[in-house]
Computed example of a mutant assay.
Amino acid sequence: MEPTTVEGGPFPLLGQPGKDGSEALPLAEAPQARKWRITTTSRHTVSGYLPPWAAEDPSEVDVPIEHLAARLVDVHHYADFDGQTLRGVRRTGQDGGEPGTLHLLCGSIDCVPYAADPEPRVPTVTVNVTPECWLSELGPADVLALAEQLRAQADRLAYEVHPALLGARADWAAAHDEEEGAGGLAVRPAAGDFGGCA
């Protein structure tokens, strides 16, 4: 690849003095390529690329050689992302029935380079839909499809469910106002039941 040159501009090229003696913009240092490394007790070493987004470095030393294969399978690069927090919610079957906090749609970007299956060997996304439901190994198209479905569901909640709920509450209030105006709870005898009168 040919180097890029700029002619006729007022700015000096990076790392070179300008024609008028002005100071060039400093060269940005290229980020150092990170690597993880596992060294065994027999001094065998296995290393690999450590992504800049990875939260942890799986490097280890003095790993018994017989445990090396298991350690490689355990290499897992990840970066967590936040979801939505709902406070004061009641969950069915929740102990005590007290309102609590629920975390939805949090997750992580994951890469397991030595996984048995090929899908997790490249970065994928895991989304925690609810505490009991995880969507895993989502590729780029899967993430966009999920985002579209969540947008559609948010629109349904805002533009269908919310107005329907307002209508249901108005109807409920009107029905109960009528009953209260008629003297409270209306109790009617079942057909054929005349309260014991002959």
Score class of each variant (00 low, 15 high):
95 D>M: 12
147 A>H: 12
104 L>D: 02
123 P>S: 08
177 D>A: 14
154 A>P: 06
61 V>Q: 11
33 A>C: 09
134 W>S: 11
180 E>K: 11
13 L>I: 00
182 A>D: 13
105 L>T: 10
123 P>Q: 05
7 E>S: 07
158 A>P: 04
97 G>C: 08
143 V>F: 05
67 H>V: 00
173 A>M: 14
114 Y>W: 13
119 E>L: 10
74 D>A: 12
46 V>G: 01
78 Y>I: 01
16 Q>I: 01
29 E>T: 10
127 V>I: 12
89 V>T: 04
62 D>R: 12
43 R>S: 13
58 P>H: 04
106 C>K: 12
127 V>F: 01
83 G>M: 08
75 V>D: 01
39 T>S: 08
182 A>H: 13
165 L>N: 09
2 E>M: 02
82 D>Q: 10
88 G>S: 06
29 E>M: 07
157 L>E: 11
50 L>N: 04
9 G>M: 02
150 L>N: 11
139 G>K: 10
67 H>W: 01
97 G>Q: 05
87 R>W: 05
32 Q>Y: 09
88 G>A: 09
28 A>K: 09
65 I>T: 09
16 Q>H: 08
60 E>A: 14
160 E>Q: 13
41 T>N: 09
78 Y>T: 04
107 G>M: 06
193 D>M: 08
122 V>Q: 11
123 P>D: 05
47 S>N: 05
194 F>R: 10
88 G>P: 07
101 T>C: 06
194 F>K: 11
114 Y>R: 09
155 D>Y: 11
134 W>M: 10
13 L>H: 02
137 E>F: 10
196 G>L: 15
90 R>S: 09
10 P>D: 08
193 D>W: 15
54 A>E: 02
175 A>G: 15
143 V>N: 01
110 D>K: 00
6 V>N: 05
66 E>G: 05
135 L>V: 13
2 E>F: 04
153 Q>L: 15
3 P>F: 02
20 D>L: 02
37 R>N: 04
14 L>Y: 13
52 P>T: 12
9 G>N: 03
96 G>V: 03
11 F>D: 02
84 Q>P: 02
51 P>F: 04
107 G>Y: 00
18 G>M: 00
173 A>V: 15
144 L>Q: 15
185 L>M: 15
184 G>E: 05
1 M>F: 06
33 A>F: 07
17 P>Q: 04
20 D>R: 00
8 G>R: 00
167 G>P: 00
175 A>D: 15
139 G>V: 01
4 T>L: 09
157 L>Q: 10
100 G>Q: 05
121 R>C: 06
67 H>Y: 03
